[in-house]
Amino acid sequence: MIAFIWSVIILTLIATIMISLYGISRRPNLVKKLIALTIFGDTANLLVVLLGYRLIYPVAPPILPSLSKEALQTFVKTAVDPLPQALVITAVVIGMAVNVLIAFAIVQIHRLYGTVDTRELSKKLIQVEGGEQ
């Protein structure tokens, strides 16, 4: 039972990644691409944290409950892996900053070319290049 639910969870996350990849590659609108990109990043983060989880009961967050050696014994037996969490925390915040950069680039593209649709954008870019030659 546990193995079944566990594999359903992992496959669901992989399916979410697939759907977001479809969004990144096939949708024409740049804003929609950005939304798909964040879904992709979030799902990848969740998958990384999921790999640090332990399938035991009880399970505890990686914070020492009290400062004694006895507590440490049970703590090491129950706590989840802290390393993926530490990596994901920075990934969440830095990912947000990078998304801000992408969003600003999209707004600037809209100002310069008047569209955020990739098909029209490629046409306009060809026009600009042709004009210069």
Binding site: L50, P61, Q85
Partner: peptide
């Protein structure tokens, strides 16, 4: 998944 640190950052962001 027992990651309260990430929840705090993730909710706000």
């Amino acid at each position: 998944l027992m990651a309260p640190d990430i929840v705090l950052a993730y909710i706000a962001i």
